[in-house]
């Protein structure tokens, strides 16, 4: 059951574990692009623009899923992309092969335990990941660790609305939305504070513009 994992001072009313998320995404993998593809594409395009990728940069994508972002990266950078779900990674592998994306490398890895050394990447990007993982703060700290100083962290996600009525609805829905892959009520200010992240910018993206694109420059 999704709600069985206790969480202290939660950023969301819904708590999930890795095994639960893994099961949900194994089921979602054949239909993910159909359900979440076009609807969330504007945010993906905006995020890659915000990453300000330079020729030769090494980008880390955390939560590559079906590889839906992989064709958006310029060919003159290199991309390492990780996901915990083997069925999702299989979709990504097929896409990378089909589209000849020789600059993209895939890894099966836990976002909360990135197996890269400190300061390894010019840019670290998490697309629609933070409301999926059991511990978004741990993931954000790992992303920060592997990013080089002055490099960029880009986080694309839906966060809880500042509007009290919408916020109540999102919190009521969250225990249900986890079964289709995400928490609807992740608290952005709480998440940033606990992660120790000070954003250089927060923009609204997608239609309706209820998703946020958070950019952080590592000090």
């Amino acid at each position: 059951m999704a709600l069985s994992v206790p969480q202290h001072d939660p950023l969301s009313v819904a708590a999930v574990g890795n095994a639960f998320v893994d099961r949900v995404y194994a089921k979602l993998s054949p239909v993910y692009d159909l359900v979440f593809g076009a609807a969330l594409q504007a945010g993906r395009v905006a995020a890659v623009a915000r990453m300000n990728i330079q020729p030769g940069d090494h980008v880390l994508e955390v939560g590559v899923g079906t590889g839906i972002n992989t064709s958006l990266y310029p060919r003159d950078c290199r991309v390492s992309a990780v996901d915990l779900s083997a069925p999702m990674l299989e979709k990504a592998r097929e896409r990378v092969e089909r589209e000849g994306l020789t600059h993209v490398r895939l890894f099966e890895m836990d976002a909360a335990h990135l197996t890269f050394r400190d300061d390894s990447f010019d840019c670290v990007y998490a697309p629609y990941l933070m409301s999926v993982v059991p511990d978004p703060v741990k993931v954000a700290r790992e992303m920060y660790r592997v990013c080089r100083p002055a490099g960029r962290l880009v986080i694309l996600n839906h966060f809880r609305s500042p509007n009290p009525i919408l916020s109540c609805i999102e919190q009521a829905l969250s225990p249900f939305t986890v079964h289709v892959g995400f928490k609807a009520d992740l608290d952005l200010p709480g998440f940033l504070e606990k992660s120790g992240l000070r954003p250089a910018g927060v923009e609204r993206v997608n239609y309706p513009p209820i998703w946020s694109l958070v950019t952080v420059v590592k000090r």
Partner: peptide
């Protein structure tokens, strides 16, 4: 490394 994908998980 399965199907070109390194599996960087302690359990595996």
């Amino acid at each position: 490394i399965k199907d070109d994908i390194p599996v960087m998980l302690i359990d595996e």
